[in-house]
Computed example of a mutant assay.
Amino acid sequence: MLLVNELHVTHVRGRRVDPPADRRAALEEAFTRQERALDEVLTEEDADRLADVAAELHPAFTGDVATLNQALVRHAAVPSLHGDPPVLAFHAPGADLVDAWAADAGTALAMVIGVGQGRRLRSCEAEGCELVFFDVTRNTSRRFCGLSCQNRAKATAYRARRRT
């Protein structure tokens, strides 16, 4: 979700946003906000390639499994154990940073879909917002990425009802 929301989305909470000019800095800032550390040095070329990966993965949030399958093949997603102690990853041991991230992220999405939880992968339904999220509500009823989009949508619906 982080890759898609940071590098691919062009409308956020009713406003048009341009993709970041410095993708590397945007990703590093996003990881810092999420209190996660980058294990490797991220180059400008890696960041540009990750923007392409984000575009590849975005359709999975709307149920397009064919595109997700193509991404899994393209980035050689294979389960393997890495390191000491071994850690399960879904990329080849020699994969570069971008292919590793793409394979791991694509496999995570495929696993969510494969266990029947694909309906929890959502895109915000508010007009003018393309953010994606994982719906954690008990009955999978979440429609918006956050309260600001929910409030905007409800206010718009209220005003429309008042006019008629």
Rank of each mutant, 00 (worst) to 15 (best):
M1W: 02
L2Q: 00
L3M: 00
V4S: 00
E6K: 02
E6I: 03
T10P: 05
H11T: 10
D22T: 06
R23T: 11
R24A: 12
R24C: 11
L27R: 00
E28G: 05
Q34P: 01
Q34M: 05
E35N: 14
A37V: 09
E45H: 01
D46F: 07
A47S: 10
D48L: 01
L50Y: 00
D52M: 03
V53N: 06
A55L: 08
L57S: 02
L57G: 05
A60I: 07
D64G: 06
A66D: 14
L68C: 06
Q70G: 12
L72S: 05
V73Q: 06
R74C: 12
H82A: 05
G83W: 02
P85T: 00
P85N: 07
P85Y: 14
V87Q: 13
F90N: 08
H91F: 10
G94E: 03
V98R: 03
V98N: 12
A100D: 04
A100H: 02
W101H: 15
A103W: 07
A103L: 06
A103T: 05
A105S: 15
A105W: 13
T107D: 11
A108W: 12
L109R: 12
M111E: 11
V112K: 10
G114A: 11
Q117Y: 09
Q117H: 15
R119W: 09
R119P: 02
G128H: 11
F133S: 05
V136T: 11
V136Y: 07
V136P: 13
N139Q: 11
S141Q: 01
S141E: 02
R142A: 07
S148H: 10
C149A: 08
N151G: 15
R162N: 09
T164H: 07
